[in-house]
């Protein structure tokens, strides 16, 4: 497919204007890029979350493709049913479309945590669908609570920074690698700043036979206490600091570092990513200096390990 911006902008939009996502939210941009990657008739399934509630307040909808929401923890199961229902009707000669792409969308809470069982089951069964998590690092929809995707040191309303605690203490679940361990054909991490990389990978995800998984980074100004104008800059910094490196995993085995991450000579300090956000403010006080250093060490170590897996250097 053409990667010229002029051509990409011709793609029919999947999410219309007038939706009620917050100003500066990363998710609508992620959806726009997803829309630019589509190759034909598509059905979208959405787990409960910001994206679901803010784009479909009855009697309005911003979706221009068939879209379904059932519950929070089951979007992968709903997608399984759609895929197999269509397959059965096609085999019985009762379905007019020759092929329909099925996409499941979930936030990090719906994917890393509560929807993980359904996701794992669907991956094991091998349905031909694409699952994309838009990861904004917490349960933002219910008011910024910690999730398995929340970073160490991140303050949320269930991991407060206080005299005794530096925000969340635990590391973030390496979801892309956990998913890849199911040995599915295709896993990739994407970021809205690197839109060409995003679209190329999403298209690949649609084209492989069997399940594919996309881990999209999606800044949240409301939860992160960041300027709404800084969303894309934060998305860029997430890649440059190693918070969200860009890579692909083929068949659960072959790790490939993607261009934007591969071209980094060295990581920028995580501080640059954190400084733009109120949710890490406490880490810049003397009390949590050491903790902040530990977070940096962990990110650096993860990056080195990833490079090794990708055979870089």
């Amino acid at each position: 497919m053409s990667m010229k911006l002029k051509d990409l902008l011709q793609a029919p939009e999947v999410l219309g204007s007038g939706h009620r996502m917050c100003a500066g939210c990363g998710a609508p941009t992620v959806m726009k890029l997803m829309g630019m990657s589509l190759r034909g008739p598509t059905i979208v399934c959405n787990a409960t979350g910001c994206l679901e509630v803010a784009t479909t307040i009855y009697p309005y909808t911003a979706w221009k493709v068939p879209w379904i929401h059932v519950a929070f923890e089951n979007v992968a199961a709903v997608a399984s049913g759609i895929v197999e229902g269509i397959n059965a009707m096609q085999e019985k000669g009762r379905y007019k479309q020759e092929h329909v792409d099925v996409i499941a969308l979930g936030g990090d809470g719906g994917t890393f945590d509560i929807g993980f069982g359904a996701l794992s089951g669907a991956l094991e069964r091998g349905h031909d669908f694409v699952y994309m998590v838009y990861d904004n690092g917490a349960y933002q929809n219910t008011g910024i609570q910690r999730s398995g995707a929340t970073l160490p040191g991140q303050e949320t309303t269930t991991s407060w920074a206080g005299k005794a605690e530096p925000g969340k203490r635990q590391r973030k679940k390496p979801i892309a690698e956990i998913v890849a361990a199911h040995r599915i054909p295709y896993v990739a991490t994407v970021d809205p700043f690197h839109y060409r990389d995003f679209i190329t990978k999403f298209r690949k995800a649609l084209e492989v036979e069997g399940p594919a998984f996309i881990h999209a980074f999606s800044p949240c100004p409301r939860g992160w206490r960041s300027e709404s104008s800084k969303t894309i800059e934060l998305a860029r910094l997430a890649v440059e600091t190693g918070i969200h490196p860009l890579y692909e995993i083929i068949d659960g085995e072959q790790y490939i570092m993607s261009g934007p991450s591969k071209s980094l000579k060295e990581l920028k300090p995580v501080d640059e990513f954190m400084k733009l956000q109120g949710q890490f403010k406490h880490l810049f006080t003397p009390q949590w200096e050491d903790f902040r250093k530990q977070v940096q060490q962990q990110i650096t170590a993860d990056w080195e390990l990833l490079k090794k897996k990708c055979g870089v250097e």
Partner: peptide, 28 residues
């Protein structure tokens, strides 16, 4: 049978997959 049988990982997913398939127009 020409049925697609989905051996789900839980009953929660059993009903969820039924809803998806039914929404697509299938008899489930």
């Amino acid at each position: 049978v020409k049925t697609k049988v989905i051996p789900v990982e839980s009953e929660h997913s059993a009903m969820s997959a039924c809803i998806g398939a039914s929404a697509a127009g299938a008899r489930v």
